[in-house]
Design a protein around this nucleic acid. Structure first.
Lengths: 157, 157
DNA sequence: AATTAATAGTTGTTTTTGTAACTAACAAGG
DNA sequence: CCTTGTTAGTTACAAAAACAACTATTAATT
């Protein structure tokens, strides 16, 4: 319609990123929410443990940039549902090592499969090299270091 | 770190998009939050009114894909602070036309300037044609129609 | 060793959000 | 008109997030 000036909301990156994130998350959200009653931070913690194996809450927080309060509550919920188990570090008894239980592993594998197929579905809407660029740009915006798989990244899976 | 399988969180679009959106929104958020005590939905409503002029809550909701409840609360807050004024539609007395007050216009212009300079700052981290592609992809993911430039305008909804 | 500072994680309290039920106005069919 | 259905917007209540204060343990300073 008639815009009053040259500013366009649809070109404003923070706005667009939030909208795209919301829309793109919706379908996946339904899975972890309906199937496992998980919250956003819970699947994030679950996935970090699934991908990286044993970690402390602090390490998850650093890697995912999630505040310790959120991690703590997400872990409490996951532990209550026997998806993660905790064990104190003997050297530093403040720290707690977290890992998935077999039930947690199962949930992770299930959701990971969903994630992969959903991701493929999203990516299929674009050319592969466009997707690669999108990922690189998003990682840069999110201050996530590039995966150091091999030489300068070119292709992914 | 040693990943246990071929799944990578940093390549998972919903995750990446959320992370990028959070990070990219942080600096701008500080402005509307600290300067005007606004919430996310409040600046969205303010911007829609600033960009498009008079609108009803329903129209804002459709355009921004924000639920009417959120709009209602955001408008109530903005009206309370005398940033927007409301007037009933005489033909349909359910509908309410919203518009910015002079104070609202001033806040909008101020925040718009912030938005533009912040956006330019973000965009400067990439090549212009990369940014254009990013915007196009994000709009597609967010189901936002392309801004009318070459193609004839298409009326939806 | 005693004091102070720092760190890992938790808990409590206040805001914000999400969901659904609600009111008021209009619309259509009988 | 009168029922039934729809729409615009609000409100109430439950769920979740944000922020800050707290405990327990370790590290640093004197």
């Amino acid at each position: 319609m008639t815009e009053k000036d040259d500013f366009s909301l649809q070109d404003f990156l923070p706005f667009l990123l939030n909208r795209a994130a919301e829309d793109a998350s919706l379908a996946f959200q339904a899975h972890y929410k309906n199937r496992y009653g998980m919250l956003r931070n819970e699947w994030r913690v679950l996935f970090h443990l699934g991908v990286f194996g044993q970690m402390t809450a602090k390490e998850i927080g650093q890697r995912a940039k999630i505040h310790k309060t959120k991690i703590s509550r997400a872990v409490a919920k996951l532990a209550e549902r026997r998806f993660v188990s905790r064990s104190r570090d003997e050297k530093d008894r403040r720290a707690e090592h977290l890992r998935l239980t077999p039930a947690g592993e199962a949930a992770y594998r299930d959701l990971r499969a969903e994630a992969q197929s959903y991701d493929a579905q999203l990516a299929a809407r674009f050319d592969p090299q466009e997707v690669a660029l999108l990922l690189r740009m998003l990682r840069k915006l999110a201050s996530i270091e590039e995966p150091v798989s091999s030489a300068p990244e070119r292709d992914r899976d």
